[in-house]
């Protein structure tokens, strides 16, 4: 493990916990895309099925379990406990337009044509675009709460750090996973516009609002 890998994981964890605490403390999921959170729950579920087949380390297992538990807790808060605050009218991204093509792609391009590997590949492809319902919602409402932007920042930062980790592992460990790297590049590119707004607005104390 290297510093980029570890800080990537911690950034990912920070994002998940920030979102969960935001919803819990404010007793509201206003401005959060429930569909996006359903996609992330699906991403973790399909990727971490390897918990049942292989053991890597205590760190690996516990982080995977924490990610899964937090993502399901978030979905529960949005669709059950604080359903009244869920802004469904603005959460109108058609997720089938992501899930179906990504499902097809994972059958066509993978490392091994086995159920677990296809599901894991599916999760990597899906994760790369799973933020789109949330970004779509922000573009529809034209604004985001500052705490929501912190969530998005850490979620985007995590994959960027993982890309540096991939370069590191290529040079120092000789391993390279083209699928993970290409998906990681796509994922990071999707955040670039947001990163720009975050740095130029939110970090200067302004609320993130888009021009009408």
């Amino acid at each position: 493990m290297n510093i980029f890998w570890l800080t990537g994981d911690l950034s990912h964890l920070a994002a998940i916990v920030i979102l969960l605490l935001k919803i819990w403390k404010t007793r509201s999921c206003a401005g959060i895309s429930g569909k996006g959170q359903l996609l992330f729950a699906l991403v973790f579920t399909t990727r971490y099925l390897d918990l049942l087949t292989s053991f890597i380390s205590l760190y690996n297992t516990s982080m995977k379990l924490i990610y899964i538990a937090c993502s399901y807790a978030t979905v529960y808060l949005i669709y059950m406990k604080f359903k009244a605050t869920y802004d469904g009218n603005h959460d109108t991204f058609r997720v089938e337009f992501l899930v179906v093509p990504v499902g097809g792609l994972s059958f066509l391009i993978n490392h091994d044509f086995s159920p677990l590997e296809i599901l894991c590949t599916f999760s990597i492809y899906l994760e790369s675009v799973a933020i789109l319902p949330q970004l779509f919602m922000i573009s529809k409402t034209g604004e985001a709460e500052t705490i929501t932007t912190h969530y998005l920042f850490f979620l985007g930062l995590y994959r960027a750090l993982y890309l540096v980790n991939s370069i590191w592992r290529f040079y120092f460990e000789g391993c390279f996973d083209l699928i993970a790297v290409v998906a990681g590049v796509v994922q990071t590119i999707l955040y670039c516009d947001f990163f720009y707004l975050y740095i130029t607005k939110v970090l200067k104390g302004k609320k993130l609002s888009l021009p009408a």
């Binding site: 990727r47 690996n60 091994d112 894991c120 592992r169 391993c175 996973d177 699928i179 993970a180």
Partner: peptide, 10 residues
């Protein structure tokens, strides 16, 4: 070949 990275990475 299995995607090694995606199983030890999160």
């Amino acid at each position: 070949k299995k995607s090694v990275l995606t199983h030890d990475e999160l």
